[in-house]
């Protein structure tokens, strides 16, 4: 598990957010400074793309996950885990993506 220094991680975004940002590629490669957690990855993502502020997490001090957003990695649902817990090594080492997912809805 990477705990210090800079880690290079992959984050996969849902299509509507790629449309918002004008991105052709859904997977973004980010440098994360320090421990690789959901919070640090999303902070780095929002720093790279300020237009995402408020679209994945709310704007309050705790930056809580929006209700219809889910976070997956390594075939696990991390949506309800502590955002400051370390992410799996495979994510921290850039071998597996961290997935931001719009919850399934509709018919």
């Amino acid at each position: 598990m990477t705990g210090a220094g800079v880690s290079t991680v992959q984050v996969r975004l849902p299509v509507p957010l790629c449309t918002l940002l004008g991105l052709a590629e859904r997977t973004q490669v980010l440098d994360v400074d320090g421990p690789v957690t959901q919070r640090s990855v999303l902070d780095a993502l929002e720093a790279r793309h300020p237009a995402l502020v408020g679209t994945i997490r709310d704007r309050g001090g705790e930056r809580r996950r929006r209700a219809f957003i889910r976070f997956f990695a390594c075939e696990e649902d991390l949506s309800h885990t502590d955002p400051d817990d370390p992410l799996p090594d495979a994510v921290a080492e850039g071998r597996e993506p961290y997935l931001v997912v719009g919850a399934m809805a509709g018919g």
Binding site: P14, P16, L20, G54, T55, D58, I69, G102
Partner: peptide, 10 residues
């Protein structure tokens, strides 16, 4: 004004 139940207000 874009609005989405998933991604909020833009």
């Amino acid at each position: 004004s874009q609005s989405s139940g998933w991604f909020g207000q833009v």
